[in-house]
Every structure is written in C-alpha cells, then in structure tokens.
Design a protein around this nucleic acid. Structure first.
Length: 275
DNA sequence: CTTTAACCCTGGAGGC
DNA sequence: TGCCTCCAGGGTTAAA
C-alpha cells in the first residue's frame, strides 16, 4: 500500500500528536521484520520526548532527544492511531504509548522495519539506508532540468530508473506507470534518450500524480486522526492504467498492456505512450 | 561501476 | 468446500 503519499499522510497524522509528548512505552510484539527491531529499543525510548516526525523518501523519522527511529512500512505496513483500550490484532508488531494516544504498527508481510539511529552515530540522513536516496519530489530543487540530468546518464528503461529512487524518491510502482502515461512516454524508453522537452512533461506528470494522490490521502488522514483505522480511498481508484491490463485507454480506447520490467509489473497504453 | 535476479513474508484471488 | 498456483503497491543484497 504505502507509496510516498501514503507515507506522507501517515507522517502528517503522527506529527499532529507525537511531537512534544513523552513516550511512556514502546512495546515490541514481533521483532522479526525486514531487519530485527533492536531488543534494547523499548528501554532506550521509555520516558523520552518526541521532538519531531519527519520523512525521507518512504522512511518515517521519529526524532527523539538522543536519536532517531527510522521506520519503513514496507509493502503492507501501516502506522495508525488507536484508542488506549483497543485490542491488538494479528500482525500488530509494535506500539507507541503516550499519555493520551497510542499507535500501532500493523504489517502482515513484515517487509517493514523499525530501526534506531543514535545521535552519537552522526546525522541520521547519513544512515546507509538514507544516504543514497534521490531528491525529494517536492523539493524546489527538483526541476525538469534536474530530472533531465539525473536521467540522461542512465541506460536502463525509464520506468525502472524512476522506480529505483536514485534520481527522485517516492515514485513507486503505481505512480511510475501513471506518471509515464500522463507524460505520454513509453516505459521501455532508455532513460538516457529522454529529451529535455519530454523531461518537462515527465516532471510535471510526476508532481501532478503525487499531488493528486496526496489530496486523496486527505480522507485517509481524517480517518487516521479520528482513529477509525480504515484506510481511505487510495489513488488506485483513480488509476488510468495501473492494474488495468486489457481495459481501454481512457484517451484512445486502445487496450492497456501489462509487461514486466525488473520483475515488477508495468502498465501502459501502446498507442499514447511513445518511445 | 551497472544490471539482474533472488529474497524477506502473508494473504487474497482465481483455476480446478 | 479445499488445494494449488500466482500475484501483490517495498527495497536490500549477492551475484554476474
């Protein structure tokens, strides 16, 4: 589920509650995630104050006075507010308990992670998992020219390059297909062959796609803040090509094609999207 | 350095 | 019903 808009929506949700609060208890129910949740983490965090809730790519960063929790939601994870009394469900692997709020990390596939980076180890953004991430899409420095320069050295198919997250973060498998559709670009095009003019289109398409998803995430946020626990309508509902193999292209009615690139599904319109 | 494929894990969908 | 196979929006890691 979580692509960048979902992660950002989650960040906004926890950021309305956690900063300034003292974490009374951090409890681990299942430590076997992408990497083990450090055993010493509950003791390290107990009675410490949250300073801020940030995000880098799809990683959530919960800053404390002495270090930062690095959280990834993987493929099936969610971090949601629940009532103080709410019973644990299957796949609730960790919980954050504050005086008047409680949060559960729920992740059936356990591809997610909860790590700890002490301040003594240096800036958290220098952490090996974060150090090589591409630019944030909403960073003003992310321009069409920036995108052009990041792509023109890569020989791989443009869809795979977008997905890799080294040029720009946050374009997951859904949004990669959707952005390329919006920009009229064939996902198989070698990234290096994208012209400046088409970089402008792609840049706009990426921002439009992510922004649209972020807006629809607002309903998720409302649910989130109200502790209803049900994910809102995700962007999937408005997808033009994603998961629509065989269905007519919204623009020209040509059947949408599904191909596999780097072991991930890609959807595109063979007529509207050009090499 | 780049590129490819295997892998971590559970659950839902669809075929038989 | 049940059993089997395939597929899933993430990203790291090892191998080529």
């Amino acid at each position: 589920m979580p692509e960048l808009p979902e992660v950002e929506t989650t960040r906004r949700g926890i950021a309305t509650v956690m900063p300034g609060q003292i974490l009374r208890q951090f409890i681990v129910h299942e430590s076997r995630m992408r990497w083990p949740i450090p055993e010493e983490l509950p003791a390290l965090l107990q009675a410490h104050r949250v300073l801020a809730c940030e995000r880098r790519g799809k990683y959530l960063l919960i800053r404390f006075e002495h270090g930062t929790q690095i959280i990834h939601l993987g493929m099936s994870g969610s971090l949601r507010r629940v009532t103080l009394e709410a019973p644990l469900r299957k796949h609730d692997h960790a919980e954050w308990i504050f005086d008047e709020a409680r949060f559960l990390l729920h992740d059936p596939r356990r591809f997610g992670a909860v790590l700890w980076h002490p301040d003594t180890a240096g800036p958290v953004l220098a952490h090996p998992l974060l150090a090589h991430l591409g630019i944030e899409p909403f960073d003003p420095q992310f321009t069409a020219e920036y995108l052009y320069k990041a792509l023109h050295t890569k020989t791989q198919a443009i869809k795979s390059v977008l997905l890799a997250g080294r040029a720009v973060v946050g374009v997951g498998n859904i949004y990669a297909s959707e952005s390329l559709y919006l920009a009229g670009i064939d996902p198989r095009l070698p990234a290096s062959r994208l012209s400046r003019a088409r970089s402008v289109r792609l840049h706009g398409a990426i921002l439009q796609t992510l922004n649209q998803a972020l807006e629809s995430g607002g309903s998720t946020l409302r649910d989130y803040v109200n502790a209803q626990g049900t994910p809102g309508a995700y962007f999937t509902l408005h997808a033009a090509v994603y998961d629509r193999a065989g269905e007519p292209c919204p623009r020209c009615a040509t059947p949408i094609r599904r191909i596999v690139q780097g072991q991930r599904a890609t959807y595109f319109c063979p007529y509207c999207q050009k090499r």
